[in-house]
Computed example of a mutant assay.
Amino acid sequence: MKFLNNDYSFRELGPIKADPEYLENAEYIDFAGFNSSDYDWWLIERTATTPEEQEITESVPYMQGEYDFSMYDQERFFKIRELTYKFVYFGKVYQDRKAYEEELKRQLLPHGFTKLIDSHDPVYYWSAKCTSVEVEDDQEKGMLTATITFKAYPFAYTNHNEGTDYWDDVAFDHWIWQPVKFNVNGDQDVNVKNIGSRPVECSFQLTGSVTLKNDSIGEVGLTQDNFKTTTIVLEMGDNKMHLSGNGTIEFQFKREEMI
């Protein structure tokens, strides 16, 4: 084999004097003002078990199976659910790791049910409270492992009211764009859809005077005197209503999702 050009030069590769590139701590939880990534906690594991149903059953002698009375008005009801997160913190000095453990408990345990944000589901948040913080210290590796458990309402809430479509908060696999504010001048029919996992309570913003009516809620008259204290329940799916009067009406509600 003949080489046409063998003019090669070589040099020694010495140590590289450059700052190391660190991975971004992108996964986090945010609870009562505590953001885990701000405190150098690295999320390595999360467990969100499905909530247990509040079952009401009855067995009858000489009957196969049992009667299940758990549903009411075509809705299933669930117990509180459990969310568990495992974090690690890297610190060579034992006293630093100890301080991080104490600060973690101070930040999480004093609070009752409040908003829990999980970067895994950025469109939603949980209503939760921290029930335990268990910590293991590894002196050899200079690592602290914390297992944090929350009790949470069984359904997650959307971050914003329906119709407030922030681009960063859109879950394209499960989302609709729909008007929830209507100008009323006389009579008109509207359909407010609830694509969530259960019926939800809906409040209002109002100008003028508007009456709404459908088969499930009957007739509700809204005025400047009562709209702030009036709510209705929006069923899952379509909520077709007849509006009459003069003014503007905005339906305000957040979806509740079983995720």
Rank of each mutant, 00 (worst) to 15 (best):
P154E: 04
L222A: 07
G163C: 05
A156M: 15
Q188G: 04
D118E: 13
S119A: 02
Y94T: 06
D173M: 09
T230F: 05
E219D: 11
N159W: 05
I117F: 13
V210E: 08
W177M: 09
D168Y: 10
E136R: 01
L222Y: 05
Y89F: 06
I148F: 00
K98F: 12
D121V: 07
Y157F: 14
D187L: 03
Y124C: 14
K193V: 15
W177F: 10
E140Y: 11
S119N: 02
N185Y: 02
V180D: 03
F172L: 13
I217C: 03
G221C: 10
L116T: 12
F227S: 08
Y157H: 14
K151P: 01
L144Y: 00
Y157S: 15
Q205V: 06
G196A: 05
Q139G: 02
P122V: 07
N191T: 13
L144I: 00
D189Q: 12
N194L: 13
E201G: 05
H111D: 11
T131V: 14
L144E: 00
I117S: 09
H120D: 11
H174L: 04
D215F: 03
T230G: 12
Q224E: 15
F87R: 00
W167H: 11
I117V: 12
T145I: 00
S119Y: 04
S127M: 09
E140H: 09
Q95E: 15
I195V: 08
Q205F: 04
